[in-house]
Each structure stands twice: as structure tokens, then as C-alpha cells.
């Protein structure tokens, strides 16, 4: 028996945080019955059905292994809960090797949180076979949780170009950089300067290295003609720069076109899902990637991703059915 997707969606819409586990169980599932219920769930939460975008702030936190993401998130989580009283959902995507198919999901243990706090939800998933750093279902899950939680964090391990998929799935991207590790240089070379909305240089307590990393990155950002904020943070007690980071996050969100950004994200997501299901051949039948993009752009703005995929599939069925008469 599959869970009732509509009911779970309705609970999230009403702000019932305890619906999160059941929602994730559905959204992560590949079983056909679950897929159907997952679609029903997402229909309830589409902008069209809600009358607005799900209100939570979806934040992507990414960076190389060892940069201090978990420690930073622990400090941010403490700040959001104790200072701003915001509910927080955290989707931790683990890059573990899929050589055996299995993975060890360690983030839950690394991120300090109060297990009795009902307003904090943490879910770990393996990135799996998916390239681009996100697990299947993470994008839709973030969208669904944003209906109930004030903040939804998607944490991924950045390995170069992969950050771009994260950027398409969230409202604000924070790239975490560790000073003195050559990360900042890597970062400049990797050509992903357009990805971050905020740069956080960790381990500010190290003093000089953190300061110079911050200076280099600020200069690099200026030379690109952007004014992306570069913040220095220290998560060790006493934490420093955490309040400033939280403020910068809120400021970015207030200044960005959330609806437009999410729509672009849904377009990209719908294409990925469609291609995963129907392959390049499906795309060719539609007339190629650009044609599919145009098709999506012509749809109403407030459709959910599931409806967008459905529209592409309808177009595919039409294009492949033999002419009548």
C-alpha cells in the first residue's frame, strides 16, 4: 500500500512539519505506485494550486570535502533556531562512492542538532548514479518542504562543475571555501564563479590565511563585475560571522526574483527528469533540447514540475503517434 500523496501534501501545505518523513519516503521512491502518489503530492503544492511559490527559503550549501560545511551548518542551525526561531529542513546529499551501490551517510552525525527539536528535519541521501551532485528527488523534495519549513537547506559536496545543478534547485547558493587549502585557486580555475550568491570563507579563527583567502576571492569577484558578498566565518566556539551570514542569506533572498528563479529551476528539472525517463531519443522526437525548452517556456508560469514533465510527455506522445486518417 502506498501512502496517500494528496493527504501528505495537504499536511505540508498546512505547515505540519511532521509530514516531512512520509513525504520524503514517497518522493525518493521509484516504485510505480509511489511515483503516482508523489505526483499527487506535488500537485497539491504547485504554485498554481497554492496560489504562490512555497514560501520557505531554499538554500544550497556546497563546497569541497573538508571545507567545514557540516560545522558551518551546525552553527547556522543553532542561529536559526535560537535567534530567529525558524523551522529548518536539511537535505544532505552524500557523494559516497557508488562502487558497491551502497553508501555511508555521515552528515547526520556530523551536524550538531537537538534530536528532540521537532522543528528541525534532517534527511540524508546518496547522490547515487546521478551526475551533478543531487540525488534524484532532492529538487522536488526541497520544493515540497519549502511549503512547510521556513528554511530548506540542500547540502552537497561540490566537485567543480557539479554546483550548477544545485544552483538551479535553490533560491540562494552559498559556496564554502576553506582558506589556505588551494581551494580558492581551484575555485577561480573551475569557472564556476557565476554559481555562488554568497561565498563563505571558513576557519576565520586561523587569522591570516582566512583573511587572504577572503581578499583574493573578493578581488576575483570584482574583476568578474559582480558584488557577490564574501564573508569570513568561524564555527568554533565562540562562533563568529554566523549572524552576518544569516543576514546576507536573507538579504539575497529578499533581493532575488524567487518565482522566476524557481521557474527556471523547474524547467531544468523537468528536462532532466524527462531525459532520464525517455533518453535523448525522446528529446530528439520533441525536436531537440531547445525545442523542449521553448515548449516549457510556453506553459503557464505557475505549473509544478510534475505538470511540466506531463506536458512534455504529452507532446512526445503526439509527436510519435502515427498521423490519423
Amino acid at each position: 500500500m502506498s501512502a496517500d500523496g494528496r493527504a501528505i501534501g495537504a499536511r505540508l501545505r498546512e505547515g505540519d512539519l511532521s509530514a516531512a518523513p512520509a513525504a520524503l519516503n514517497l518522493l525518493e521512491s521509484t516504485a510505480p505506485a509511489d511515483r503516482e502518489q508523489a505526483t499527487a503530492l506535488m500537485r497539491v503544492l504547485s504554485p498554481a494550486a497554492l496560489g504562490h511559490e512555497p514560501p520557505g527559503h531554499i538554500i544550497g550549501v556546497t563546497g569541497p570535502p573538508g571545507a567545514g560545511k557540516s560545522t558551518l551548518l551546525s552553527a547556522l542551525l543553532a542561529h536559526w533556531r535560537s535567534q530567529e526561531h525558524l523551522s529548518v529542513a536539511l537535505l544532505a546529499v552524500d557523494p559516497s562512492s557508488r562502487r558497491s551501490g551502497g553508501s555511508l551517510l555521515g552528515d547526520r552525525a556530523r551536524i550538531e542538532h537537538d534530536p528532540s527539536d521537532r522543528a528541525v528535519f534532517i534527511r540524508s541521501t546518496a547522490a547515487g548514479e546521478r551526475l551533478g551532485g543531487l540525488a534524484a528527488g532532492t529538487r522536488t523534495a526541497a520544493h515540497a518542504l519549502a511549503a512547510a519549513f521556513d528554511v530548506v537547506v540542500v547540502e552537497t559536496v561540490g566537485v567543480g562543475q557539479a554546483e550548477t545543478e544545485v544552483a538551479e534547485a535553490v533560491d540562494t547558493v552559498v559556496v564554502v571555501v576553506q582558506p589556505g587549502s588551494g581551494d580558492s585557486l581551484q575555485f577561480l580555475k573551475a569557472g564556476i564563479m557565476e554559481v555562488p550568491d554568497i561565498l563563505a570563507v571558513t576557519k576565520a579563527d586561523t587569522g591570516q590565511p582566512a583573511m587572504s583567502a577572503r581578499r583574493d576571492l573578493t578581488a576575483a569577484m570584482r574583476s568578474l563585475g559582480t558584488d557577490t558578498p564574501v564573508l569570513a566565518v568561524s564555527s568554533l566556539p565562540p562562533p563568529a560571522g554566523i549572524t552576518e551570514l544569516a543576514q546576507a542569506l536573507a538579504a539575497h533572498r529578499a533581493g532575488c526574483e524567487v518565482a522566476a528563479r524557481r521557474r527556471r529551476g523547474r524547467h531544468a528539472g523537468a528536462l532532466i527528469d524527462f531525459a532520464a525517463e525517455h533518453g535523448n531519443r525522446g528529446l530528439r522526437t520533441l525536436g531537440g533540447r531547445d525545442a523542449a525548452q521553448r515548449l516549457l517556456a510556453a506553459l503557464p508560469d505557475d505549473l509544478g514540475e510534475a505538470e511540466m514533465v506531463a506536458a512534455l510527455e504529452a507532446a512526445l506522445a503526439e509527436a510519435s503517434s502515427p498521423p490519423v486518417g
Partner: peptide, 30 residues
């Protein structure tokens, strides 16, 4: 480690867990 090698997704939380912590993790992680 063996569960991972056998292909499962493993949430390993380490030591010193309270019963309520285990229950919360099991629920949230599905």
C-alpha cells in the same frame, strides 16, 4: 561498512545516542 559494501544506504550515527535520538533519526531518515 559491510552493509555499505553489500549495497545498502547506511546512516551511521556513532556512539552515545539516547533512545529518543535513535527514534528521531529512524523516522526522519525513513
Amino acid at each position: 561498512v559491510r552493509a555499505r559494501d553489500a549495497g545498502m544506504d547506511v546512516v551511521y550515527e556513532g556512539i552515545r545516542l539516547t533512545p529518543s535520538q535513535i527514534a528521531a533519526s529512524a523516522l526522519q531518515e525513513g
